[in-house]
Nucleic acid binder design. Structure first.
Lengths: 167, 167
DNA sequence: CATTTTATGTCAGTGTTGTTGACATTCCAA
DNA sequence: TTGGAATGTCAACAACACTGACATAAAATG
């Protein structure tokens, strides 16, 4: 991938504290933009980012268990449970007792859950698409490579597995 | 900047929802990694991310005013005030009545404030540097371009101005 | 000079999201 | 049958955001 430039990695990778600081601030400001659109939608439904994250990963892994979500989201079960309960009570998430292991709950989005997840997802994808277009194709690969390198290693599996999952 | 690839932008910028979803998850997981190291340090000092952000931008703009910080951080004055008061009370930030305009407060880091900010900054820069090194120089430019395009336009000024500020 | 606006600080109340700790239930597995 | 895993729930608490209201000082404006 890449390495199409004329200069070697070493000569370009002299990183001043100033350059790193700019990268840090870019993450800060960009993450605000990244969450801004979904936040506005969530507000209308009296939900927060925690609900968005739950909806996202239930949509991503239909039938996932609570424990799997806990691992991905990195919060306590009490915290996740509060959020999931609200979504289940409101009829956005269906929590079915596991067939193989009846202690587990398999989580699915209902029709209205799918609808909200789509609405949130569309908004977030729209901004991501615009940013990708503005930055250009090479930037997209670089963006993802830096982000992946910035993750905690344990999290990388959630990101790396199923490179292009069954579609 | 870039465009050194052999394919045109258009052919590479066919973005599937799947690719966009991966970008979204990359942001989510990477931001967690991005804040993980400072969070651990802050915990020991009974501070949170809000304190880190305040320290960062006071260090970045010594003598800045409360109003300017409010604009950058995008929180309410009550929220910022709580954080600033703690930092001032603990002797990490010096709040001096403005000379030109006495309504304003000019904010500076004290010696111990500088020390903590350095500690936090070092940790965060260290991870950023590692990510940059792992991803390579082309990735760095792409990373920053995508992030900048993802920001809300109003925020871009805080990021773009003083490209390489007086050093 | 009087009035208004601006910058800041503060108090009270509320909501979301996270945390610990404790305890109950269900059920797989040794 | 006992132990432990998976889940759910209750209570309490903390960080960090919010709104609304009010106070003070000083600049700006008429």
């Amino acid at each position: 991938m890449a390495e199409s430039g004329s200069q070697s990695s070493e000569s370009l990778l002299f990183l001043t504290d100033e350059q790193l600081r700019r990268g840090i601030e870019a993450m800060f400001f960009a993450y605000r933009g990244f969450t801004a659109d979904p936040d506005r939608i969530l507000e209308q439904h009296a939900y927060g980012r925690a609900h968005h994250r739950a909806l996202h990963f239930v949509a991503r892994y239909p039938g996932t268990t609570v424990n799997n979500l806990l691992d991905i989201l990195g919060v306590t079960k009490q915290s996740l449970n509060r959020v999931l309960r609200a979504l289940v009570d409101d009829g956005l998430v269906d929590s079915r007792v596991g067939t193989r292991d009846k202690r587990e709950r398999n989580l699915y989005l209902t029709q209205s859950g799918t609808a909200l997840e789509q609405e949130l997802s569309d908004a977030q994808r729209s901004r991501m698409r615009a940013a990708y277009r503005a930055a250009g194709p090479e930037a997209v690969a670089g963006f993802r490579n830096v982000l992946e390198a910035m993750m905690d290693p344990e999290m990388r599996k959630h990101f790396s597995d199923s490179k292009e999952p069954a579609r």
